[in-house]
């Protein structure tokens, strides 16, 4: 993969270099897809979102102004917004079982337990209010700092911290209730952040 900065690749992309497009795709597609799949709980919807994100990247390349927001922040923001738009549309339609749509079927018997665990976490994530879920995905899975997460979510660092605390509490109640820990078990709050 290219070591060039995002800004350099965007300039080359604006000049019509297909290779620059390939480098940007290799750098960002796995991250965009992972964020969208964890937010939406659906691979096919995540792929649709990824296509839409890259369409915007291709169009934006020629107009990109260095010195403003970081490109990676912008990509995460666009992905997050597209996911939230889909979740809002979906609210009026019946929701599929998150555990069923969250993960592809395992290919071998030895992977069944792993896949079950993965599906369980996916379902628990889907039960969180969308902004709690987004904060947790950005910090835990995308490994972004709290400031960048706040910028993407258009809120303060303190608000990100509060969302994370509530998200993790909800997940602990759901996922660790059988483990030997001393915290009380409660249902996940249905609040919307």
């Amino acid at each position: 993969m290219s070591e060039e900065s995002d800004e350099t690749l965007l300039k080359r992309l604006a000049a019509g270099e297909e290779r620059a497009a390939r480098f940007l795709l290799a750098r960002y597609l796995p991250r965009v897809l992972a964020l969208a799949q964890r937010m939406l709980g659906s691979r096919s919807e995540a792929e649709d979102v990824a296509q839409e994100v890259f369409l915007r990247i291709w169009k934006q390349a020629a107009r990109w102004q260095p010195g403003g927001a970081r490109f990676s922040t912008w990509v995460h923001r666009v992905t997050s917004n597209l996911c939230i738009d889909r979740l809002r549309v979906r609210k009026s339609a019946p929701l599929e079982d998150a555990a069923l749509i969250a993960d592809p079927a395992p290919g071998a018997e030895s992977r069944v337990a792993e896949a079950e665990q993965s599906a369980r976490v996916a379902a628990a994530l889907q039960s969180l209010p969308e902004r709690q879920r987004l904060a947790l995905i950005l910090v835990h899975y995308q490994e972004l700092g709290n400031r960048e997460t706040a910028e993407i979510m258009d809120c303060t660092v303190e608000a990100v911290e509060a969302l994370l605390t509530r998200a993790r509490k909800g997940l602990k109640d759901l996922l660790l209730k059988d483990a030997a820990f001393d915290a009380p078990v409660k249902a996940v709050s249905g609040e919307r952040q």
């Binding site: 297909e18 497009a21 390939r22 795709l25 597609l29 796995p30 897809l33 992972a34 799949q37 964890r38 691979r43 792929e47 990824a50 296509q51 890259f54 369409l55 291709w58 969250a102 993960d103 592809p104 792993e114 665990q117 993965s118 976490v121 996916a122 994530l125 947790l136 835990h140 899975y141 997940l171 996922l175 660790l176």
Partner: peptide, 21 residues
């Protein structure tokens, strides 16, 4: 527990569709 939720890497067909667009 959270780390157990893995997402498969994008396949070549998706990359090709994105580049073609």
């Amino acid at each position: 527990m959270l780390n157990a939720f893995k997402v498969e890497a994008p396949d070549a067909a998706l990359s090709a569709r994105i580049l073609a667009a």
